[in-house]
Design a protein around this nucleic acid. Sequence first.
DNA 1: TAATATACCTTATCTGTCAAGGTATATTAG
DNA 2: CTAATATACCTTGACAGATAAGGTATATTA
Lengths: 106, 106
Amino acid sequence: MSIRADIIRGHTETIILAHLMKGNSYGYEINKSIKEKTNNRYELNDATLYCAFRRLEESGYITSFWGEGNSGARRRYYSITNQGIEFYKKNIEEWNLTKELIDKLI
Amino acid sequence: MSIRADIIRGHTETIILAHLMKGNSYGYEINKSIKEKTNNRYELNDATLYCAFRRLEESGYITSFWGEGNSGARRRYYSITNQGIEFYKKNIEEWNLTKELIDKLI
DNA sequence: TAATATACCTTATCTGTCAAGGTATATTAG
DNA sequence: CTAATATACCTTGACAGATAAGGTATATTA
């Protein structure tokens, strides 16, 4: 069983930030991690992922830089900002409230 | 604290069906019930609600009929179908899986 | 040498939600 | 009696996040 987009919608940014809370990372790695953590039951669409990076960076929640090293394909690394950390924490609280409310409603 | 639309998105139909699982009802009543159950922390936008009714009826998950009785404003009642009950149960399972996955990811 | 994995990006389209507008009736407060 | 509020439904246009489908480029493995 897989999950509809509308159900995950709105959590994409929080999922990315959660990963960045544990250290800098890049798109491909984050998505692989999502796949692994969910035992292949979920992964982000490429476009969704990179779109979310743009939004997060524009909002000041992450910063980006091209990775050093000349082996392999180039990587754009992302780093969470202090604002991003605050935003992440707020989203976690919101998720806990959401679970509570939806469990009451359905 | 309130909840962003994107977080609830996708649950509207299940919330409506959950209400109809307990008996026939109409839009205004369903929305009032949502408000009460969540202590005014959440309610559906009118347009969202009536849009969802259309989708659910087109999909065969609910049927509708105008309420009898000549007191008060007219009401369009909705009734959940067998297909709707199946769909509701599927959505509940999906929600349980979603909670599990998101809790792992964020 | 071909296939696969890594790694990033853009564009057009889809879909649920919402703001803002509307109609109409019944009840309550002044 | 009248104004305000509650009940009850509906439509339209716009928004925003997600997706499909396309692309580029390098490194590794068969």
